[in-house]
Computed example of a mutant assay.
Amino acid sequence: MTEATASSPIRVFVVEDQTRILKNQLRLLESHQDIEIVGTALSGEAALEDVPRLNPDVLLLDLGLPRMSGIDVTRQVKAQWPQVEILIFTIFDEEDKVLEAVKAGASGYLLKGTPADKIVEAIKEVRAGGTVIQPSLARRLLRHFRVEPDPSPVPTEPLAPAPAAPEPQHKPLSNRETELLQLIAKGVSNSEAARLLNLSKATIRTHLEHIYHKLEVTNRVEAVTEGIRKGLISV
């Protein structure tokens, strides 16, 4: 379970415009041997200048930056350095912005004031390819996803007669996949899901890949949304 951190610590770059909060985050994280703080920035512009030089694994990014927003930083970092995972720090009344950050490529989000052990766990989670969704914001985000129009294309002219037995709307999930998707909807991380289901993290990631493929989505938020739309799970 510690393969990602066994050889070297995770390189973390912290972007926060309020120096008091920044110092507090550094104090919380610097005591963890699995984490190496490779740099800090007080603005998005400064962060973009330093990312290629510092080569971080994970960017801890304040969503409410002045001038250049955390959303814009996310978009540019993922466009230029897609290997960098981005973990957003947010507050309760920023769910619209969180949604945009997730769409722009952020791998997850944490509320400001999250305990240090949860921050470290989230950093490990996104470094390992996972996504972090906190239950305290998950339902509010899902409401936004559910009111979006269906992006499926609509035929503009009649096609050949449909077959007598129409194709199913989605590939059925297995009982284990449905169970895992329900846990994800509650904000459970890969590590927590592995413990709850008595499975390895590698097996959890495999199940997630199958869920994404069957639901034709690319991340946890979309998977939960599709699961709700199709009546597979509830929140």
Rank of each mutant, 00 (worst) to 15 (best):
G64L: 05
S107Q: 09
A104G: 04
E179N: 09
I119F: 03
E3P: 08
A46N: 09
E216G: 09
L29K: 02
V58Q: 02
S43G: 02
H144C: 02
S136P: 06
I37P: 06
E94C: 05
E95A: 06
I21C: 07
T156V: 13
I10P: 04
I184P: 03
R176K: 11
K112Y: 09
L54E: 11
V102Q: 00
R67T: 06
A165E: 14
Q25L: 15
R205D: 00
L142N: 02
I21N: 03
R139D: 02
T178H: 13
H32I: 09
F145A: 01
D57M: 05
P135C: 10
G113C: 04
R20H: 14
L181A: 00
L26S: 03
D117I: 08
K97C: 08
E209P: 13
N190F: 13
D17K: 09
N55K: 09
T40S: 09
P158G: 07
T131Y: 15
I37C: 10
N190M: 15
R229M: 00
A46G: 11
R143A: 13
P153T: 00
Q182G: 04
N190Q: 12
G64W: 00
M68L: 14
E179M: 09
A4T: 12
A223E: 02
N198K: 14
H210E: 05
V38F: 06
A193L: 04
P168L: 14
I119C: 04
V224I: 10
D72C: 11
K186S: 06
E209Q: 15
F13A: 04
V132K: 12
P82F: 14
E85V: 02
D93R: 01
V84S: 04
V235G: 02
I21A: 05
Q134L: 15
R229D: 03
T19D: 07
R75N: 07
A194H: 06
D96R: 11
F92R: 12
S107I: 01
P161W: 10
K201N: 12
Y212T: 04
V77K: 02
E192F: 11
N219L: 01
T131K: 10
T2E: 14
A4V: 12
E226H: 10
L232P: 04
V154R: 10
K201Q: 14
P168K: 13
D50E: 15
A160R: 15
E148R: 13
V221P: 04
L197P: 07
A185E: 00
F145M: 07
R53P: 08
K97D: 13
G231P: 06
R20D: 09
P135D: 11
A6G: 09
L181C: 01
V77P: 02
A138L: 08
V14Y: 03
G130Q: 04
G70D: 03
I86T: 08
D72Q: 15
V120R: 03
A6F: 13
E216I: 15
A164I: 11
L61Q: 03
R127S: 08
A138K: 07
R139M: 08
I71M: 05
E94Q: 13
R220C: 06
T114Q: 02
